[in-house]
Computed example of a mutant assay.
Amino acid sequence: MSESTETVEQQPDPDPVMAEIGRGMELSQRGERDAARGVFAGVWDRLGADGDPFHICALAHSMADVQDDPREELVWDLRALEAADLVSDERVRRAGVVSPVAAFYPSLHLNLGDVYRRLGELEPAREHLARGLGAVGALGDDGYGQLIRGGLDRLAERLEGPGPSSD
């Protein structure tokens, strides 16, 4: 009998922090924004500002989406962008994410552009739109990539319009 030298790709161990962030995202998607904020706040309390930048990026990006006050949303969106700048492609791979860190930026800039637009701060909104559009090449040609590209297109249309709105 011969031995098989089959290569088995090892899956990363489940990340309990990402699992908790995922739980908060599920609550958010079900419309349970207060509960999601509570989950995210608990994760933030454990991570702190000096935690793993990958975790902070994911957490802050998600926490921004459940804020009622656009100024608070902006704080979390900026925190997500700052953390992304500290994440390596190696760290992303260890987390089991197939896309590079560069693929995070279109969405991060889309969110920042939109919140600045809603705050009536049109110059930073346009700057983040331009940065998001400049980064779309890192996105795949899949549903997620199409979603983000569509969001950037809608943001561009809104920025050409008469002014900020709450939509």
Score class of each variant (00 low, 15 high):
104 F>M: 15
105 Y>W: 14
107 S>D: 15
122 L>P: 01
126 R>P: 00
138 A>I: 01
86 L>D: 07
122 L>Q: 09
118 R>V: 02
131 R>Q: 12
108 L>R: 13
142 D>Q: 13
142 D>C: 10
80 A>C: 01
132 G>N: 01
104 F>H: 11
122 L>M: 12
128 H>T: 03
86 L>R: 15
118 R>M: 10
96 G>N: 07
81 L>K: 04
123 E>Q: 13
106 P>H: 09
114 D>Q: 12
124 P>V: 04
93 R>P: 00
115 V>E: 07
111 N>E: 10
112 L>W: 12
93 R>I: 02
139 L>F: 07
97 V>Q: 12
101 V>S: 10
139 L>E: 11
110 L>A: 09
137 G>K: 06
129 L>R: 07
109 H>R: 11
116 Y>C: 07
105 Y>K: 12
133 L>Q: 15
133 L>T: 00
137 G>E: 05
87 V>K: 05
118 R>I: 03
80 A>G: 04
98 V>W: 10
102 A>M: 06
127 E>C: 01
83 A>E: 09
113 G>A: 05
102 A>H: 11
142 D>G: 13
95 A>S: 15
121 E>W: 03
113 G>L: 07
86 L>Y: 01
96 G>R: 08
87 V>L: 05
135 A>N: 12
131 R>K: 14
117 R>D: 02
106 P>Q: 08
82 E>A: 14
93 R>S: 04
114 D>N: 10
91 R>G: 02
91 R>K: 11
76 W>P: 10
137 G>S: 05
123 E>G: 02
133 L>Y: 00
124 P>F: 08
123 E>F: 03
88 S>E: 06
122 L>K: 04
139 L>N: 12
134 G>P: 01
121 E>Y: 03
137 G>I: 00
105 Y>Q: 09
81 L>Y: 04
115 V>F: 06
120 G>N: 06
96 G>S: 07
129 L>A: 11
103 A>V: 09
98 V>M: 12
134 G>N: 02
140 G>F: 05
136 V>Y: 12
129 L>H: 07
110 L>E: 13
106 P>V: 02
136 V>G: 08
92 V>L: 13
92 V>G: 03
81 L>T: 09
84 A>I: 04
76 W>C: 09
126 R>K: 07
128 H>C: 03
109 H>T: 08
94 R>H: 10
92 V>S: 11
102 A>L: 10
140 G>S: 14
135 A>I: 05
130 A>P: 00
98 V>R: 15
121 E>H: 08
117 R>N: 00
76 W>Q: 11
107 S>M: 14
115 V>T: 15
121 E>C: 01
103 A>E: 13
79 R>K: 14
76 W>L: 10
134 G>V: 01
91 R>Q: 13
129 L>W: 07
130 A>G: 01
122 L>R: 13
92 V>N: 07
95 A>G: 14
78 L>N: 14
89 D>K: 06
100 P>Q: 03
93 R>F: 01
135 A>T: 03
108 L>N: 10
93 R>Y: 05
108 L>I: 04
119 L>R: 12
